[in-house]
Design a protein around this nucleic acid. Structure first.
Lengths: 242, 242
DNA sequence: TACGATTATATGTCTAGACATATAAGTCAA
DNA sequence: TTGACTTATATGTCTAGACATATAATCGTA
């Protein structure tokens, strides 16, 4: 095998080392469990310093392609098909990316003291004020998704006076709340009367449900349920690297 | 603010630098677009070499928390809620992780020349042989999911003679095929007669559908459709970093 | 004012060392 | 055979430099 590039060292050295090893893993030449060469062996093979091969191996470890064990060496990991990158785009961006006209409609907005059900949904114990919002997103004037959202005003007091009649609450939050963490739960239901009417589908038709719970540093921000017509909407998750 | 840890330097220095910056971004102290200190400033602040702060910043860049621009500096990125890590576990692992008894049952297996529908599903043009497998996974003897799979024998010839009566094809492939890439599509349907019977649910009940298409280096390996009862199964995707 | 050339600078990569630390493997005694 | 102790070693982290390179900012000119 060639250790040096054919034409030149176009990519940097550590990237070439990483790519070389990655290729051997992908092709199965180095199967899961195989011990890849020690750092000092790679140093000798590529004629570079240990920091360089260390950087290549560290990135492979971060990508879960290899596992590094002190004193033992680095080993090819078994593929983990279960981990995929699911892209849940902002609905507006998703629709405009499809080249369709985005439409938004506020159906209802209520400011109230948190009920027991609200607290349960937001995962908070203390009572406080919340805003409950129901709205609909459409593409080319066809209902695309209905949104049912709860915002914790003790975390986002500014949301009490925000105008959600034009701007979707998701977009507003994205611009007014610092970095957050989120958890999505995906499930399927059949449309009840209310959902069927909002999405303009038949009662009993399948719906894809995304429940998103958003927080920042253990502080709840918002909980949202998105309902999509199940036969027309698709969520695509691609395995890492693609 | 304190630059040194209260007790001791329990984590390594570059991890502390990374955590310090991450905290400022998460709390909103450094909002999206904010330029974080230059490497040489952090070097002075932490009293370490540039390689150390470089490692911290590189990892933050890899996690998409910051963006690095030559000559300009490093900047806080806007949160990207749309990217979440979806864990689609191996069904057996998923069930045993729940502390329930895993059951597997082969319903049907056919070896045939690829039909037009098969080729379309696998995304291949040339004809060839395929194995079509239908099976059921159960938890504590309750149907958990039904699987409908197609394996391209031109990519995995060994699958023609594999015994799928005991081992699920997913597990078998995991152990016999090198690293692969995959794409998942999630949607919702209502159960038809055949599905309802296999999952022991009512006709018209909601079902969550995962279509997974797996390949390696542009070579198709398998296409599988998994059907779950929609009211009992959940897919959880957590935003990166959790 | 607009545009092209020059310069300054922050990041990107790399080196040749160093010490720390977890742990696999070997050693020895009960 | 088993358990406790020791040792060897691969990885983990770090340093104090270096040169490369993309590009923002400046300057000069038409």
């Amino acid at each position: 095998m060639s250790l040096t590039a054919d034409t030149a060292d176009q990519p940097t050295l550590y990237k070439r080392i990483r790519a070389d090893i990655e290729k051997r893993i992908l092709t199965g030449e180095w199967p899961p469990g195989h011990r890849i060469p020690f750092e000092h062996e790679l140093v000798a093979r590529y004629g570079c310093s240990r920091m360089t091969v260390n950087k290549a191996l560290s990135e492979l470890a971060q990508a879960d392609l290899i596992e590094r064990r002190r004193r033992a060496g680095s080993f090819v990991r078994r593929p983990q098909h279960q981990s995929a990158v699911l892209k849940i785009a902002d609905i507006r961006a998703e629709i405009t990316a499809l080249g369709r006209a985005y439409g938004y409609e506020l159906i209802g907005r209520k400011l109230r003291a948190a009920t027991a059900a609200d607290r349960d949904r937001l995962g908070v114990k203390k009572a406080g004020k919340v805003v409950a919002i129901t709205c609909r997103h459409s593409a080319d004037n066809v209902p695309f998704a209905v949104e049912d959202r709860l915002i914790d005003l003790s975390s986002v007091p500014h949301a009490a006076t925000a105008d959600f009649s034009r701007e979707p609450p998701g977009s507003w939050l994205l611009h007014h709340v610092p970095w957050t963490e989120a958890e999505h739960t995906i499930s399927a239901i059949v449309a009840d009367d209310r959902t069927a009417e909002a999405l303009d589908i038949a009662v009993g038709a399948p719906c894809l449900v995304i429940d998103r719970y958003t927080w920042r540093s253990a502080r709840t921000i918002t909980a949202v349920r998105l309902l999509y017509p199940g036969d027309s909407h698709r969520l695509v998750a691609r395995f890492k690297g693609g």
